[in-house]
């Protein structure tokens, strides 16, 4: 494991760039623990001050120090992405492994449902969800909802691996030596699926953060918990762009773009590592 990571860092420029970008973002989010102000206090510093030594990212029109506020926002955003990813990974793993291993009717039924979830446009459904929940909308609820909707694509990927594992000899050996289905799936098949699981995690975090930012920017989430999207929402509410307070928009967008590209590079380089054929094709 550590050796793989070291090799990836040394020989794969995409992986190294992704790690650096995410490292900066993660370090910045950890700064939130040292913030001198609680995230929701406003008018603690003079409003609309451009970036300077005292306020490295300037201050907002609501009198918040953008540097510290942003550290809270990126922490919540990252946490959101991880919660959605972990929950939906569990779903994708169970459905993908069971469908691939069982085959036949179970596989067909599960994959029909799976394809349905891939096709359905999720955004209107999430908007409908907000519309019904309104003020009761919370961060955790949205994460749960998105986890329930966001497993399908990766379940299909995992299933395709499980399909080929089923025909391998060790599976037969396992069956004949009396292992239960659960044992075979968890002890024999899971280790083969884990690398793919990691790379889909990165893509899933990207997906969920992207949707969260979009919903928040429109004001369709809990707008009192600072996330990157909520920050942009408030900047738009105060017409920061027209008022010339560019830093209020620039730094959140910069940070979230760094996150997206970082996660994406990690996913791409991991895929490449899993499938060495594409490595050979590139050189």
């Amino acid at each position: 494991m550590w050796r793989t990571l070291r090799d990836l860092l040394r020989f794969n420029r995409q992986f190294a760039a992704g790690i650096v970008l995410l490292g900066i973002v993660a370090a910045f989010s950890c700064l939130s623990f040292f913030s001198p102000y609680p995230p929701n206090d406003s008018f603690v510093v003079p409003p609309d001050v451009p970036p300077s030594w005292a306020y490295p990212m300037g201050t907002t029109s609501r009198g918040q120090d953008l540097f510290w506020l942003l550290s809270f926002a990126i922490r919540n955003t990252l946490l959101f992405g991880m919660v959605v990813a972990i929950l939906s990974r569990a779903l994708a793993l169970v459905i993908g492994l069971v469908a691939g291993y069982s085959g036949g009717l179970v596989d067909r039924a599960l994959m029909s449902i799976n394809d349905t979830f891939i096709v359905i446009p999720l955004f209107p459904i999430l908007v409908l969800f907000y519309f019904v929940m309104r003020d009761h909308m919370s961060w955790g609820l949205l994460a749960l909802m998105m986890a329930c909707l966001g497993w399908a694509y990766d379940a299909r990927l995992i299933r395709s691996v499980a399909l080929s594992l089923r025909t391998r000899e060790f599976t037969q050996t396992g069956i004949f030596s009396g292992m239960s289905t659960r044992q075979i799936l968890v002890e024999e098949h899971l280790p083969y699926v884990l690398p793919i699981l990691f790379s889909t995690t990165m893509n899933n975090i990207n997906w969920s953060i992207g949707l969260e930012v979009t919903l928040s920017v429109l004001g369709f989430t809990d707008i009192n918990t600072p996330t990157i999207g909520v920050l942009i929402y408030w900047a738009n509410q105060h017409t920061a762009l027209v008022a010339g307070i560019w830093w209020w928009l620039f730094f959140p967008v910069l940070l979230v773009v760094m996150t997206f590209i970082g996660l994406f590079l990690l996913a791409v380089s991991m895929n490449e590592h899993i499938d060495p054929r594409s490595r050979l094709g590139r050189s």
Partner: peptide, 17 residues
């Protein structure tokens, strides 16, 4: 590759600016 992972909203917003 650089544009691909960025969500639609952010790209549209950048073009708007």
């Amino acid at each position: 590759m650089a544009f691909h992972p960025i969500p639609y909203y952010i790209v549209a917003f950048l073009l708007l600016i």
